[in-house]
Amino acid sequence: MNEGWRFFLLFFGSALVANILLIRFIALCPFFGVSNSLETSLGMSISVIFVMVMASSVSWVAWNYVLEPLHVGEFLYIPTFILIIASLVQFVEMVIKKSSPPLYRAMGIYLPLITTNCAVLAAATESVKPGFFTKLNIAYSYGFIESVVYTLGVAVGFSLVLIIFAALRERLDMAPVPKYFKGIPIAFITAALFSLAFMGFAGMFSL
């Protein structure tokens, strides 16, 4: 397999086949929380892509150059990554607020909400421990570029589903839904059907 093809598979594998929201059921809280309107879900998506890629690249460096050499990675990776992600998000928020107010207005307000987002932690963990949440025990670790491509795939998959789902929910508001299914219940049912549809990707290839 040549390099480009491998990156392509890695990207689409993490975005569609093992979609973080619909196949792995991680980060369901923002999935239902901010999918009320297309506008908020767009802002959230951009911020998630940005933070996820930055957080997992820093986490990859911390894992490979701090935790592994000290042999403490196996039990310290969660507190370390959370610490890194939280500080990084704070730092990025400050820098954006100072340097680019329009960008801050567009995505800065979602940044504090992502600080402890489980999807970001999951992506950071999986970028250093491939297949961790799918219990595949892949005896293989990503290089830096691979981990970035992988995380980008996860984040794009998250955004794709979030935006599609937000558009769906905007239409659901207009639909003649029975009274007791209005709002969140019908959103859950729709998400389940959506998830079934995404299961179809599983046959194409796996990570």
């Binding site: 911390a62 701090v66 935790l67 000290l70 042999h71 403490v72 039990f75 310290l76 507190p79 370390t80 610490l83 890194i84 500080s87």
Partner: peptide, 14 residues
């Protein structure tokens, strides 16, 4: 190692 590593990381980031 774990204690010092994590404390050090926390202090640096702080």
């Amino acid at each position: 190692k774990a204690g010092i590593g994590l404390a050090g990381l926390g202090i640096v980031l702080g």
